[in-house]
Simulated scan of single mutants.
Amino acid sequence: MSGPAEEVATGCRVLAAHGHSDLVWGHLSRRDPDGRGLWLKAAGYGYQEITPERVVHIDRDGQLLGGEGRVHLEYPIHAEIMAARPDVGAVVHSHAEAAVTFAATGLPLLPLGHEGTLFWPPDIARFTATGDLIHTRELGERLAEALGDRNAVLLHQHGLVTVGPDVPTAVMTAIFLEKACRMQLAAAATGASCTWSDEEEALTKRERCYGPRQLADAWAHLVRITS
């Protein structure tokens, strides 16, 4: 991946292959490396359809700086999180069904498997101010506040947002979050009591299972099988 548009396009196709498609809705962004706004999946296309030509370059106000596509109404998700978090280089928003369903239960997201350790402890951040679209700067700012310094937030009656220093991290965090939600829903459906890692073990696993080398290898695998 040689440029921001290529990175966003690849990330979108990986998301499509791993449970995040919802027709033409959902989006991925990447901070511009030169500090000029951000690169965002264009509106009107599904994740699996995104090529570098279907990625737009916009400023914080959603004005086009480059590209010819339409800008998603929810661009403030990306613009306001990046404004509030200088450490964030990429943002994912999707309507992954397991995440939407799990958020509606109000249950804490627990580390039944490795994936949950990325989000607990403490429990995953939640945005409950509205289930509507994040279509204004004010709502984007409130979402960024709910996210805080975390790597993910569940938007109740809506979807998920994950962030990372780069596209691979943000995308894989979204994949792990959807899987953690899906696993816990499946466990709850059995009606049996469940066990999970305690705080000490969860924090140890977070570092051991998802260190830089492991994430780099996992991302390379996802790109290979998606291309």
Score class of each variant (00 low, 15 high):
residue 124 I to T: 07
residue 125 A to N: 10
residue 141 E to R: 15
residue 141 E to L: 10
residue 88 V to A: 04
residue 141 E to S: 12
residue 95 H to D: 08
residue 101 T to R: 13
residue 113 G to P: 02
residue 122 P to W: 02
residue 140 G to C: 01
residue 148 G to N: 00
residue 125 A to K: 15
residue 113 G to I: 15
residue 92 V to P: 06
residue 150 R to E: 00
residue 146 A to N: 06
residue 85 R to Y: 09
residue 147 L to Y: 03
residue 143 L to Q: 05
residue 137 R to L: 02
residue 83 A to Y: 07
residue 128 T to S: 09
residue 142 R to Y: 01
residue 109 L to H: 03
residue 100 V to P: 01
residue 116 G to Y: 07
residue 93 H to N: 13
residue 93 H to Q: 10
residue 103 A to S: 14
residue 106 G to L: 00
residue 132 D to E: 15
residue 117 T to G: 06
residue 136 T to E: 11
residue 133 L to V: 11
residue 99 A to K: 07
residue 144 A to K: 09
residue 126 R to V: 14
residue 150 R to A: 00
residue 142 R to E: 09
residue 142 R to L: 12
residue 145 E to K: 11
residue 124 I to R: 06
residue 149 D to G: 02
residue 108 P to W: 05
residue 103 A to K: 02
residue 98 A to M: 00
residue 117 T to R: 00
residue 113 G to Q: 15
residue 151 N to I: 06
residue 104 A to W: 10
residue 106 G to C: 11
residue 102 F to H: 08
residue 125 A to Y: 02
residue 151 N to C: 13
residue 84 A to Y: 14
residue 123 D to Q: 07
residue 93 H to D: 10
residue 91 V to W: 11
residue 111 P to W: 14
residue 85 R to L: 04
residue 82 M to E: 04
residue 115 E to F: 09
residue 99 A to T: 14
residue 136 T to L: 04
residue 86 P to L: 13
residue 122 P to M: 06
residue 89 G to Q: 08
residue 131 G to I: 11
residue 127 F to K: 01
residue 104 A to P: 00
residue 148 G to L: 00
residue 90 A to S: 15
residue 104 A to L: 12
residue 119 F to N: 12
